[in-house]
Design a protein around this nucleic acid. Structure first.
Length: 877
RNA sequence: GCGGGCAUGGCGGAACUGGUAGACGCAAGGGACUUAAAAUCCCUCGGCUGUAAAGCUGUCCGGGUUCGAGUCCCGGUGCCCGCACCA
């Protein structure tokens, strides 16, 4: 055989050479650019991965996320859809400002440099993205549209201003997010953080609480977990709002209102507690310096989970009393207490120590009575002594009895008691059954430079005035510095000082910018018409939205997704589209994890700094530079702090993008974490070369082979395997079960590899040709470069990326004869080969005729024979 | 505290609505080719008994339902996640 004319099956596929070549071929043909405004007869499909923050380098998590999205995009394209698959950059945010402070760079330059670097990396992954739609949220063209949306929302009453507490760092003169406050101190300055009240902008997401909650039921392509998290976050609870009357008026109050979800425990009330910010507490504090001091102290304690856990229940007795609503001869003391939140309910509660842990803690500390309203059915003890230990919190249990209920009210137990008390309170004019939501309005003001400016002007005469639309965009000034603490916009006089849009007098711009979550709440809509002079074109948005498949991390399960759901509604109200749910299908992928090396004391080492050896089953890690042995730690999420990262660039240089993509998809179910191992990556690369070798091996035979026709024997066997694979892979890809699809492809490749070309007759050659074509098309969504290279080698002049997904032949994808397992008393004894459509009677007769069965029966009759067609036979003796 | 999830070989994981447990991959062991290595190919691979044929046992633990349970029900253990002074 002449080696010049026939490919050498031992030659290796070179991804470094081939991958850029195919990327260029796709780009040259604009294969992935979608014409959204061109109505075709083909159905459309919008697949989107959560866009990245331009930190500077992509990480393996990105590779996994985008590999998944790309498989969906490429598969759907092959299935005949017009696919929209865009990419952009979530580019505003604090890291750019931090970098500016540290490195004396400008946030803008830093961000765009990072985008350039990451775009290059993403392009080397060979993703089928429509790059003509790319934008960054820090592009003026983007945030100009966002400012329009803000003004529209303002017009429709979806935005308002109110005072709100913020964490204020007095040294950096900046507002801190909760997670930037560590032990009550600023993460950067270390200064004691103060609680400050600032007037800030809010989106009225709470107007949509009920709707956002109810509509969760319609999201049937979302993970149940995410839906539950959202429902909990919105936090609907029904309860009683009710008045408690003071025995004597004080500071202008003769009563105040409380909210409770447990009105059934009303009889157990032993004290009242109000928040330090409650209007009554504030009014009383004016003439009570002790109380004022108490309020100030309380404000100092942090809001982190740990602090709250350890924080003592503290109260200040106001000396006031209220009348007990069930027993007018009794009064209850009124405390100001540190564990009452002003922004939930009414900021006031009655305390029932018998049935609530916090109230119990509080009552124990201040020596208040503990009175039960529920006791177990079988409890014969005195109810007063019953609850002296731990609070007892029955609700839905049927094993409790209700005691001390309001006069004339009687029910069995549980929820009924709550409803009955609410009815009773309503009938007696004491209160109302109401619904409370946990969801608060969304504060979007950030005292930062690197964000979308809020387009309003503050005028001494006119107040807050929206900027005129023709004056948009309110562009961020470039000439700012970060050497002085605080927001540079505050001290940028030429930018800040502008005439009032209403009266023309000197006024000042709002210097706050928007929360970056605003930027990411509508980018999916902008991708449809990214260059328009309006935020959207409603007609096109309606045609392409909702996003058919959205893929990203679980960390965005609540805020980003909830804000986006709100934005879709708000944008619908403002006429920008008519879609309420932005994401039809949601998939949350697992993390990429890796072993760690080192520990807290010696520090952490990167995998690339070590040699990992395995001897007698024991693994050890040694430093390359010093030879020192380093302990191998747990498997954790890849992170800079643990230094257990693997750079996608290195992997793509060594093995190619296809290998990285394949490995990220193959090893674990996509929703679960996947561990990066070098051995796993090598295994994936071995498969790349195996496919290539298989194609090379059959080049000559398949070139002359015709299309497979009706055949038998070996050829039929191969064809059946091919069509079964095609069917299974298609089904798995529809379900995003990438790991299972890959297992099927491995199986198929094993089947094909077992056939040796030397013995192949014409029938087998053509069956192999079909099998190899199917194989190449099946791998194409995951390993598009290798697929193109094989496709080309097989003599195709077209690109595999523009091929339709092959159809399987149902007749070949199913067997006519099947092996039924035969059990005796539920234990497998043998197999029985039958026609797939054999009747129950036929199968039963054949089973009883089997030697194994006959031997066990030994002439006697079986008690029962269970035949499940196509599944199993079970003989019960 | 409240809410949710998961548990299968040495490892990652398959097993559709109850129907052959361990597909596929990784690791490991043995062998072939090679001067040698890499690459590749072949074999073994849950545990126990057995030369073998075969048999027993086995999906976190204890019960139950069923002809049949990894899958369903009850009780427990362990791990993971979300929310959290939300009244």
């Amino acid at each position: 055989m002449d080696k010049q004319t026939v490919s050498d099956p031992t030659s290796r596929y070179n991804p470094r050479e081939a991958e850029p070549r195919w990327q260029k071929a796709w780009a040259d043909r604009k294969l992935f650019e979608t014409l959204v405004d061109e109505a075709t007869t083909r159905p459309n499909y919008y697949v989107l991965e959560m866009f990245p923050y331009p930190s500077g380098r992509i990480h393996m998590g990105h590779v996994r996320n985008y590999a998944m999205g790309d498989v969906v995009a490429r598969y759907k394209r092959a299935k005949g859809y017009d696919v929209l698959h865009p990419m952009g950059w979530d580019a505003f945010g604090m890291p750019a400002e931090n970098a500016a402070m540290q490195n004396k760079t400008h946030p803008k330059g830093w961000t765009y440099d990072n985008i350039d670097a990451m775009r290059k990396q993403l392009k080397s992954m060979g993703l089928s993205l429509d790059w003509s739609r790319e934008f960054a949220t820090c592009d003026v063209e983007y945030y100009a549209q966002q400012q329009k949306l803000f003004l529209d929302f303002l017009k429709h009453g979806l935005v308002y201003r109110k005072n709100a507490k913020v964490n204020w760092d007095p040294v950096d003169m900046t507002v801190l997010a909760n997670e930037q406050v560590i032990d009550g101190k600023g993460w950067r300055s270390g200064a004691e953080v103060e609680q400050r009240e600032l007037t800030q902008w809010f989106f009225k997401i709470s107007d949509f609480s009920e709707e956002l909650l109810d509509a969760i039921d319609t999201l049937d392509e979302w993970p149940a977990k995410v839906k539950l998290m959202q429902a909990n976050w919105i936090g609907k609870s029904r309860g009683l709002q009710m008045k408690f009357h003071l025995t004597t008026s004080a500071a202008g109050f003769d009563h105040f209102e409380i909210f409770t979800t447990r009105p059934d425990t009303l009889a157990g009330a032993s004290f009242m507690a109000i928040a330090p910010e409650h209007p009554l507490a504030i009014a009383l504090a004016k003439n009570d310096p002790e109380l004022a001091k108490f309020g100030k102290e309380v404000r100092k304690t942090g809001t982190s989970a740990e602090e709250l856990e350890t924080a003592d229940k503290q109260g200040y007795d106001t000396g006031l009393k209220v009348l007990h609503p069930l027993d007018k001869t009794k009064t209850l003391p009124v405390y100001v207490a540190n564990f009452i939140l002003m922004d939930y309910g009414t900021g006031a509660v009655f305390g029932c120590p018998a049935h609530d842990q916090r109230d119990h803690d509080f009552a124990s500390k201040y020596g208040l009575p503990i009175i039960a309203t529920f006791i177990p059915n079988d409890c014969e003890d005195d109810p007063d002594t019953f609850v002296s230990g731990e609070p007892y919190v029955p609700l839905k249990s049927e094993t409790v009895k209700w005691i001390n209920q309001p006069a004339g009210v009687s029910v069995a137990s549980g929820q009924e008691a709550i409803d009955a008390t609410i009815d009773w309170a309503e009938q007696n004019g004491l209160g109302d059954g109401i619904v409370q939501f946990r969801l608060r309005d969304w504060g979007i003001s950030r005292q930062r430079y690197w964000g979308c400016p809020i387009p309003v002007v503050h005028c001494e005469d006119c107040g807050v005035v929206p900027e005129k639309e023709e004056n948009l965009p309110v562009e961020l000034p470039d000439d700012v510095t970060f050497d002085i603490p605080g927001n540079p916009l505050d001290r940028h006089a030429t930018w800040r000082d502008v005439p009032c849009p209403a009266c023309g007098k000197p006024a000042k711009r709002e210097t706050d910018t928007m929360d970056t979550f605003v930027d990411s709440s509508w980018y999916f809509a902008r991708f449809i018409t990214p260059h328009e002079k309006n935020p959207t074109i409603a007609e096109q948005a309606n045609r392409w939205l909702p996003v058919d498949q959205y893929i990203g991390g679980i960390e965005h399960a609540i805020l980003h997704l909830l804000y986006s759901r709100f934005f879709a509604r708000a944008m619908s109200i403002a006429g920008h589209m008519d879609i309420k749910e932005p994401f039809k299908g949601l998939f949350t992928q697992g993390m990429v994890v890796h072993e760690t090396y080192g520990n807290k004391d010696m520090g952490w080492l990167q995998p690339a700094e070590l040699i990992i050896e395995e001897k007698d089953g024991a693994r050890s890690a040694k430093r390359i530079d010093t030879g020192e042995e380093v302990p191998i730690g747990g498997i954790e999420k890849m992170s800079k702090s643990k230094r257990n990262t693997v750079d996608p660039d290195d992997i793509m240089q060594t093995y190619g993008a296809d290998t990285a993509r394949w490995f990220m998809l193959s090893d674990s179910p996509p929703e679960r974490d996947v561990e990066w191992t070098d051995a796993g990556a090598e295994g994936a690369h071995r498969f790349v070369q195996r496919v290539w070798r298989l194609v090379q091996t059959w080049l000559e035979k398949s070139a002359s082979a015709t299309l497979p026709e009706n055949s038998g024997g070996k050829a039929l066997e191969i064809r059946k395997a091919s069509h079964k694979t095609l069917k299974a892979v298609g089904e798995d890809l529809e379900k995003l079960a990438f790991n299972r699809a890959i297992a099927r492809i491995y199986e198929h490749c094993n089947t094909l590899s077992a056939v040796k070309p030397g013995q192949a007759d014409d029938g087998v050659s053509s069956a192999m040709k079909e099998g190899i074509f199917f194989l190449v098309q099946c791998i194409a969504p995951m390993m598009p470069h290798l697929a193109e290279e094989c496709w080309h080698a097989l003599g195709q002049t077209s690109l595999v990326s523009e091929q339709a997904w092959p159809e399987f032949d149902p007749a070949l994808a199913t067997d006519s004869m099947i092996m039924l397992p035969v059990q005796v008393n539920g234990k497998k004894r043998t197999d029985l080969e039958v026609q797939i459509d054999a009747s129950v009677e036929q199968i039963e007769a054949a089973t009883l005729n089997l030697d194994v069965v006959k031997k066990i029966l030994n002439g006697s009759k079986p008690k029962k024979v269970i035949v499940v067609p196509k599944r199993i036979v079970n003989v019960v003796v």
